[in-house]
Design a protein around this nucleic acid. Structure first.
Lengths: 145, 145
DNA sequence: CAGAATCCAATAGGATACTG
DNA sequence: CAGTATCCTATTGGATTCTG
């Protein structure tokens, strides 16, 4: 049998359901406004994850990040970094040289986010073929019908 | 000492860096178009996670989901479900009754995503106080300066 | 160098009305 | 019930120019 693995695939589901029940036991709980939302919204925006991944390797200066992610505009990079700084995930340090130099690095909190993020990335890598296949199948059927 | 835990906080970072180096070894690798992006984009959009969480509990009919997530519009719910179906994360089953009834449930692939998702949710719950605090501090300093 | 400011285009998403 | 279709607004994000 194939069920010798300690990591029961249904365990996650059960854990999640239990957690949701706890949430729902709170009076007037609003799922849409739950704390988790703001985190996922942040990770979901176009550049946050890419920036986090870049900073995971080492501290970077502004233009270093820009070189690592060439297709981000300065405007968006600034905004992404500000949001991350605001959330305490990234620390910004200014060196009053001339011309100025600014260094960005992950905070301890930011580094702690890498663990769950890696899980997600691993899942995405492992299952990307399945998703691509599913999309192809779906699109084919759609166009036929 | 506090380092008896097997889960070294830096392990995730190292694993990620290693993975990135593998990515970069591919010729002409484009970080912005990496497979992971499409997954994170999906999770990041406004309703996907909420829908996944709802379906994690049990199969739902269209209006059941709508009741569980009251502030989603039918338009967005339809679209979110279509996207999830297209990615092979959700299965749609029509019962040709009158009036029609449609059931949505997570596929095996969809359920497998719950594990990394729970990790992320757990992180968000555990660290939400820190984030809130960081935001407050940041906003205060901003307005003063 | 590291942004801030401004302008503009594309997309996301809400409200409402209609349909098999 | 389970959507579609249409319209309209708000947000996102790119391009460009300017500055300490």
């Amino acid at each position: 049998m194939t069920r010798l693995r300690t990591n029961n695939p249904d365990a996650a589901r059960k854990a999640l359901v239990k957690r949701i029940q706890q949430w729902n036991s709170v009076t007037d709980f609003d799922l849409a406004r739950c704390p988790v939302r703001s985190i996922l919204d942040r990770l979901g925006d176009k550049w946050t994850t890419l920036t986090m991944i870049t900073l995971a390797q080492k501290a970077h200066r502004f233009s270093e990040i820009h070189r690592a992610i060439p297709d981000i505009s300065k405007r968006m990079l600034t905004q992404t970094l500000r949001d991350l700084e605001r959330d305490g995930l990234v620390a910004r340090r200014v060196f009053p040289t001339k011309p100025p130099s600014v260094e960005y690095r992950l905070t301890e909190l930011g580094e702690s986010l890498l663990a769950p993020l890696v899980k997600l990335i691993t899942w995405a890598e492992n299952n990307q073929p399945k998703i691509t296949k599913a999309r192809k199948k779906f699109d084919t059927n759609e166009s036929v019908v």
